[in-house]
Design a protein around this nucleic acid. Structure first.
Length: 420
RNA sequence: GUGGGUGUAGCUCAGCUGGUUAGAGCGCCGGAUUGUGGAUCCGGAGGUCGCGGGUUCGAAACCCGUCAUCCACCCCA
């Protein structure tokens, strides 16, 4: 038997209604906030991701699905959506368009990681990118959109945390202070963090190892090294969040794993997700467009993991599945099957949800299938009915049966169906 | 990449310190009801015990390997 790939899942018909619920909520709210859908390729030239996400990040170093095109070009299955969106923005010179460029996207992302709860190799994200506005209200708009979607879906026990990463110059002045401090306490840090001191010292701040946390609790804070401009920007962001009543808390340890973030960063976590507790996260990335060869352009965005939202979605959110009132057509005997097929087609052309199980050869089997398919009505057409030019419409709940004329089938049935 | 748990019927799982025909519940099929579903009763089908090797008179059970899966580390959405 050929099986699917590790960490890559099929979404069977039983689960797609839950997905659609989430997708529709995201789409609806994105529209209200003035974001428009963009659809970008699933694979890109490898250098795009290396340059945007950061060559020394885990994603680029060891998690990308990279392969050679026939001409030798290195291509990569996208591990996230921002890089491709920004590439598209630059390539199509969207900067020339005089209205704010606000995009949203849906789609699969690929990272070669060991699967576990809330983590797959092919997973799905919804993301937004607000490109061109260097205004705290743009940050707040994006955060608010994220929060509204999650709230609308009634996802429980969510926490929104925000932090100020400052400008890159701020981090340059802060980094030596942090490194000096960390080196003084190096022996108390975990092996991983000892390595991080050299590679990416800021990441030591959000290490989960308790010993590391004790040490970093009293470490110099980035907040104390921030420039006046960065402080003022962040103050405006948090003040605006207060104004529109988005609940958040400050987390000075919040350091994103992708290199392109600056100023505002944020993350929504859930308590009931297992180890992978981040539902959605994002931040401002003012340098990225320029890094990728475009004009200096401020931008802010986020991405949420659809699988993680799905894990949190209350069961009560999704109905039984078959909301449409359906008519089951039971054609049997020697002439019933053909008459039934005619009836099926006529009902469907009239806009009625009509089904049949062609395996069923007698009325009993048909009725059992009608029951299993949760059809409200069954249209019974056996040889007797064909001779009379009529059929029996049985209400499966009340067991009341009506005679209907085959010549005027759909209008009669239409009038008997409950108006919805 | 590292560690731990679990692989027995379509599904959820039992199966005692190895013992002879491998079980249950649910589901499925048929009958009671030769043209009327859901309930009930009766009957039935369905398993290379993940795979390979080893120990043993004898292995679903013990050992080794391997694969799959889940969880955790790591990392992130």
């Amino acid at each position: 038997m050929i099986k699917g790939i590790k960490g890559v899942k099929d979404l069977l018909p039983e689960e797609t209604p839950r997905w659609r619920l989430i997708e529709e909520a995201a789409r609806r709210w994105a529209g209200r906030y003035g974001f428009h859908e963009i659809r970008i390729p699933i694979f890109e030239v490898t250098t795009l991701f290396a340059r945007s996400i950061g060559a020394s990040t885990d994603i680029v170093e060891k998690e990308m699905y990279t392969f050679q095109d026939r001409d030798g070009t290195s291509l990569t299955l996208r591990p996230e959506g921002t890089a491709g969106t920004v590439r598209s923005y630059i390539e199509h010179n969207r900067a020339a368009i005089p209205v704010p460029q606000k995009y949203f996207y849906f789609g699969p992302m690929f990272r070669h990681e060991r699967p576990q709860a809330g983590r797959l190799r092919q997973f799905h994200q919804f993301g937004v990118e607000s490109i061109g506005m260097a205004d705290p209200r743009a940050d707040v708009e994006v955060i608010a959109l994220l929060w509204r979607i999650l709230s609308d879906l009634n996802l429980p026990n969510l926490t929104l945390e925000i932090n100020n990463l400052g400008y890159s110059a701020d981090r340059d002045t802060y980094r030596p202070h942090l490194v000096t401090y960390l080196k003084q306490h190096e022996s108390g840090l975990c092996a991983n963090c000892q390595h991080r001191i050299e590679v990416n010292p800021l990441r030591v701040l959000d290490c989960k190892v308790p010993e590391c946390r004790v040490i970093t609790e009293t470490a110099p804070r980035l907040g104390d090294s921030l420039s006046e401009a960065a402080r003022s920007y962040f103050t405006q962001v948090s003040a605006a969040l207060d104004v529109i009543k988005i609940p958040y808390s400050l987390n000075h340890r919040l350091v994103r794993g992708l290199d392109y973030y600056n100023l505002t960063t944020f993350e929504v976590t859930a308590t009931n997700l297992g180890a992978q507790n981040a539902v959605g996260a994002g931040g401002r990335y003012d340098g990225l467009v320029e890094t990728l060869g475009g004009p200096p352009t401020p931008a802010v965005g986020f991405a949420v993991g659809l699988e993680r939202m799905l894990m949190l979605l209350p069961d009560s959110s999704v109905g039984k599945g078959l909301e449409d009132v359906a008519v089951y057509v039971a054609g049997f005997g020697s002439h019933g099957p053909v008459a039934g097929l005619t009836a099926l087609e006529e009902l469907r052309l009239a806009g009625i949800h009509a089904v049949s199980d062609f395996r069923s050869a007698n009325l009993k089997a048909h009725l059992r299938q009608a029951d299993r398919l949760a059809c409200r009505f069954t249209l019974i057409i056996g040889d007797d009915e064909v001779v009379k030019g009529s059929a029996i419409l049985r209400d499966m709940e009340t067991k009341v049966q009506y005679d209907v004329n085959l010549a005027t089938l759909s209008p009669q049935i239409q009038s008997l169906l409950p108006t919805s």
